[in-house]
Design a protein around this nucleic acid. Structure first.
Lengths: 109, 109
DNA sequence: TTCTATAGGAACCTTATGGTTACTTTGTAC
DNA sequence: GTACAAAGTAACCATAAGGTTCCTATAGAA
């Protein structure tokens, strides 16, 4: 139960992994990279992703400032998620992770 | 207990995160980026990293083909770890993760 | 007036990951 | 012959992350 140090990371790169890490966040960001999405659209596109983990992941991405959440005051509810400025700055990284992943999968065959 | 699908990833980028993910792997790779290291050197440099998690992480990186392990047949034992070719191909990614992490930490202040 | 659609919360369980402690092996130095 | 060094392994525990099921609110449609 030690207090958190001023800088909780050994390396800045860990901050990046903390933001995009987790089982589904990359996939969520990948969809948002193509444009805004509502919750129900995520549910249809990624049926294996449970409601709970979806909203949890979206909340964390929102708190990290990577995506924005817009609530339309209507019934039934409508909530739209999209990339923020900060989120867009991640694009290069996401692309590179994908490229190296392809290379790696190929190299391991 | 479902069988693994042919491709266990939704995205190739997930393969990358699987390789470098975990609490200590980035740090380990960061040290190896500067040159070969023996186990005892890791223990001194990263005292918060337990023996168990260290060897476990090194094993996984080795299985991923990212690092190599060389055992010298002597007593007391001597084991040296270093980056492989494949490991070196990760360098750009690691750098970018670090750069974005710095940017992000700054942007969040 | 009952049903539907949408987004989410609450309670609970399971598994993965990380951490701790104690033990092992074996040649050399004291 | 005892102690030490290096690189582990084994058994165990704690916490985090992910997953399941059921519940809620509310306007309009049937």
């Amino acid at each position: 139960m030690a207090n958190q140090p001023a800088q909780p990371y050994n390396l800045p790169a860990e901050a990046t992994l903390e933001v995009i890490g987790g089982k589904w966040k990359l996939l969520i960001l990948c969809y948002l990279n193509c444009g805004p999405m509502r919750t129900s659209e995520f549910r249809k596109e990624i049926p294996d992703l449970s409601q709970k983990v979806l909203t949890q992941s979206l909340r964390e991405l929102e708190e990290a400032g990577i995506i924005t959440r817009t609530v339309y005051n209507q019934v039934p509810p409508k909530v739209v998620y999209e990339m923020s400025e900060l989120g867009n700055s991640l694009r290069t990284i996401l692309d590179q992770l994908g490229e190296w992943g392809e290379y790696y999968i190929e190299a391991r065959k």
